[in-house]
Design a protein around this nucleic acid. Structure first.
Length: 592
RNA sequence: UGGGGAGUCGCCAAGUUGGUUAAGGCACAUGGUUUUGAUCCAUGCAUGCGAAGGUUCGAAUCCUUCCUCCUCAGCCA
C-alpha cells in the first residue's frame, strides 16, 4: 500500500471553522428534535437532538445530478459525518411543472452510489432522513397565514408585467403595489380563496411586505405563493397554490432543524430574506431558536467541462452525446459508466477544498484523483489496443507455456495469474519503430526488450505492406531469461513491453474516451460551446485482450497495463462479451 | 453609475481577535527505486499575499483610496 497522504484537518475550510465555533459556543446544546420535521411546538415535545449539526442536500428533482452536485453532496454529508451530525436528503419539490418521480429516483440512486444514506441514523436509530418539501405544504401554508395575520404579507393583484415594472432597477427603488394596503382580513380572505381554487392562475400572488425601496431586490416584497393549477408528483391535485423557493426553503430548513444551510454563492442576496423570515416566524411562535443559518460557497467550475443544466440538456437533445449516461458527460450517471469511482470523487472534493472564491479547477486534478484511487484499487490485466503481430522466430511452433503475472504489484496478496506465451503474439504498434526516435528504448531492429513476465527478445526485422505499414515484427528470444528464473537478470534491458498470445487472445470492442471539449472554457468569448466539442472525444477500436477478460462483470474496473484504467460497460456489455470503456489513461512522460 | 460577494505561487487553498523564516495539495523541475516511460521516494518551487498610501517595534492580517472579477431586476430553484 502506498503511504497515506495527510488528510486536510477539520476546520480547514471556512464552513468547518464556523461549525467548530458554533459547537464550541454550545449553540445547539438545547436544540430539540421530535424524530421528524415539524414546528416549534412539535419539537418541544421531543428530546435534545443527538445530532448537534444538521445539514441537508436539497436537490430539485428536475434534472440529473452532475459533478458539481457531488461537491455539495460530499460537503453536506461529509460535514455531518465528521461532526457526528446528520445530513438530510431533501427534495426541493415546490414547482410541480418541472419536477417528476423519474428524477427523484435517479437522484436517490446517485447519492447512494456516492456512498451516503439517510436511513436508520436518527436519535433512536430508526428514523429516515429522506424528506420532501412538498410534505411541508401544510406548514408553509400555515406560515403564510401567520405572516398575513401579522401584516407581514399581502395579496397582490397586479399582473406579472406590472409587478416587474414596479420592481424598479438596480439604481432606482421600486414602487409600492396599489394592493399593498389591503387589510389583514381582506388578505386572509383572498389568500384562502386562492387556496380554494377560486381565482385563476396568475390573477393574484402572495407577497412578503418588506420594503420596495430596498437596494436588495429580494427584499422588494418578494413573491412567496403563486396560483398554479398543476399536478404535483407527490401531492397530486391537492394544491393549486405553491410556495416559491425563497419562502419555502428557509421553512424546510427550520422544520428539519437544520443548523447550517449550505448553498452556492448566487443565493447570497437571498440571505437577508432568509433571516427576515426566520425572525418573523420565531416572532409568531411557529419556530424557535436556534434557527438555521445560511452559508454560501463557490460552485464548482471544471475546465473542459460544461455543467450548466441548459447546456447539458442541449448536448443530449441534439445528440452530441448518447443519452444522459454517456460516459463523456459530467453527469454522475455518465461518470459511473465511465469508471470513475465514489472514492475518486471523495478525494477530488477533499483536494479542491471549499471557499467563496470563484475558481476553475483544472481538469487534470479530477483525472489525477481518479488515477490515484484506481491505482490502488484496480486489478491489472493486459490489453493490446492497436495490435501488430510479433513472431518469435526461434520459438517452437505450436508450443505454449505459462507465464506468471501479478494481479496487483502493490498488493502481492492478490497473487499471480497465468498467461500463455506462444510463437505468435500481438504487441502494441507503438512499441515498434523501424527507425527509432531519440531516446526510444522499445523494439527496433537490433534492440532487446523484455516481454513483460516472459523472455527477453531481440528484434531482427519487420515486414511491411505495399503502403509501407509494418505488418509483422520478427525477433528471437533468449531462452535463459524468463521472468522469475535465475537467468532473468542476466541481460539488462530498459524496455519492457506487454503482449498477448495470438492464439489465446480475446477480441473485444474498446472505447477510448477523451475530454468532450477541446477548449478549457467551452463557449468562452462569443463562441458557441457546441463548436468547442472535441471531435475525438470517443474512438471505438477492436483490441486483443488477455484471455479471461471475456468473463468479467459489468462495472468491473481494471488497469490495462501501460495504458490506463478500463471499466466493463454497464449498459452495452453482453454476457461473455464485455465492452470496455477507458476511464482515464496512465500518466505518460514519454509522449509529452 | 445601487446592493451583495471575491481577489494569497501556473491551478486550488490554509492563514485574517497584527507577532518568529506565508501551511498543504495539484502541476512543474531535477535526482533515486522500479519487469507498467506508471506507481513510489527525495529535493527544489511566493522577500511575496489585486495596487498604492498609512498606522505600528512588527501587517496577508488594522485604516484610506483605487483596480479587477462574480452576482441580483422569474408568479424558476
Amino acid at each position: 500500500m502506498a503511504k497515506q497522504k495527510t488528510p486536510l484537518p477539520p476546520g480547514s475550510n471556512f464552513i468547518r471553522g464556523i461549525i467548530e465555533r458554533d459547537l464550541a459556543a454550545n449553540k445547539y446544546a438545547e436544540k430539540k428534535w421530535m424524530g421528524r420535521p415539524g414546528d416549534a411546538a412539535h419539537h418541544q415535545a421531543g428530546q435534545v437532538d443527538v445530532a448537534k449539526i444538521r445539514t441537508r442536500f436539497p436537490p430539485e428533482p428536475n434534472g440529473y445530478l452532475h459533478i458539481g452536485h457531488a461537491k455539495s453532496i460530499f460537503l453536506n454529508f461529509g460535514i455531518a459525518k465528521d461532526y457526528d451530525g446528520i445530513c438530510h436528503l431533501r427534495f426541493d419539490d415546490t414547482n410541480p411543472e418541472k419536477e417528476s418521480q423519474e428524477y427523484v429516483d435517479s437522484i436517490t440512486e446517485m447519492v447512494k452510489w456516492l456512498g451516503f444514506d439517510w436511513e436508520g441514523n436518527g436519535a433512536n436509530g430508526e428514523e429516515s432522513n429522506l424528506y420532501f418539501a412538498s410534505d411541508y405544504f401544510d406548514d408553509m401554508y400555515h406560515a403564510a397565514e401567520l405572516l398575513i395575520e401579522h401584516d407581514y404579507a399581502y395579496v397582490d393583484s397586479q399582473t406579472a408585467d406590472e409587478m416587474r415594472e414596479n420592481r424598479g432597477t438596480l439604481t432606482e427603488s421600486g414602487k409600492d403595489s396599489p394592493f399593498r394596503t389591503r387589510t389583514v382580513e381582506e388578505n386572509l380572505t383572498l389568500f384562502r380563496e386562492m387556496r380554494d381554487g377560486k381565482h385563476a392562475d396568475g390573477s393574484h400572488i402572495l407577497r412578503a411586505k418588506i420594503n420596495m425601496a430596498s437596494p436588495n431586490f429580494n427584499l422588494r416584497d418578494p413573491a412567496i405563493y403563486r396560483i398554479r393549477r398543476a399536478h404535483h408528483h407527490n401531492t397530486g391535485d391537492k394544491w393549486c397554490i405553491y410556495p416559491m423557493y425563497t419562502f419555502a426553503h428557509p421553512i424546510e430548513d427550520a422544520l428539519e432543524r437544520v443548523t447550517h444551510s449550505l448553498c452556492t454563492l448566487e443565493f447570497e442576496d437571498q440571505k437577508p430574506f432568509y433571516d427576515w423570515l426566520m425572525k418573523k416566524l420565531v416572532e409568531t411562535g411557529m419556530l424557535e431558536q436556534p434557527v438555521p443559518k445560511q452559508y454560501e460557497f463557490a460552485r464548482l467550475n471544471l475546465t473542459y467541462v460544461v455543467l450548466s443544466k441548459r447546456k447539458l440538456i442541449q448536448l443530449v437533445e441534439e445528440n452530441h452525446v448518447d443519452g444522459w449516461d454517456d460516459p463523456r458527460l459530467p453527469t454522475l450517471a455518465g461518470a459511473r459508466r465511465r469508471g470513475y469511482t465514489p472514492a475518486g470523487f471523495k478525494l477530488f472534493t477533499d483536494r479542491i477544498g471549499v471557499s467563496k472564491a470563484d475558481s476553475w479547477i483544472e481538469y487534470v486534478i479530477f483525472e489525477d484523483c481518479m488515477r490515484e484511487v484506481l491505482n490502488q484499487d484496480a486489478v491489472r490485466r493486459i490489453a493490446v489496443l492497436d495490435p501488430i503481430k510479433l513472431v518469435i522466430d526461434n520459438y517452437e511452433d505450436g508450443k505454449s507455456e505459462d507465464c506468471f503475472a501479478p494481479n496487483h504489484p502493490l498488493k502481492p496478496e492478490l497473487e499471480k495469474r497465468t498467461v500463455q506465451l506462444s510463437k505468435e503474439l500481438w504487441i502494441e504498434r507503438e512499441d515498434f519503430m523501424e527507425e527509432p526516435a531519440p531516446k526510444y528504448f522499445r523494439l527496433f531492429p537490433g534492440n532487446k526488450v523484455r516481454l513483460r513476465y516472459g523472455y527477453i527478445i531481440e528484434c531482427t526485422s519487420c515486414e511491411k505492406d505495399a503502403d509501407g505499414n509494418v505488418t509483422v515484427v520478427h525477433c528471437n528470444y533468449l531462452p535463459d531469461t524468463k521472468s522469475g528464473t535465475d537467468g532473468a537478470n542476466s541481460v539488462k534491458v530498459k524496455g519492457n513491453i506487454h503482449w498477448v498470445s495470438a492464439n489465446h487472445a480475446y477480441e473485444a470492442e474498446v472505447r477510448l474516451y477523451d475530454r468532450l471539449f477541446k477548449d478549457p472554457h467551452p463557449g468562452s468569448g462569443d463562441k458557441d460551446f457546441i463548436d468547442d466539442l472535441n471531435p475525438g472525444s470517443v474512438k471505438t477500436i477492436t483490441a486483443q485482450l488477455e484471455a479471461g477478460l471475456q468473463d468479467v462483470n459489468a462495472g468491473e474496473i481494471f488497469q490495462f497495463e501501460r495504458h490506463g484504467y478500463f471499466v466493463a460497460d454497464s449498459v452495452e456489455s453482453k454476457a461473455g462479451k464485455p465492452i470496455f470503456n477507458r476511464t482515464v489513461t496512465l500518466r505518460d512522460n514519454w509522449q509529452k
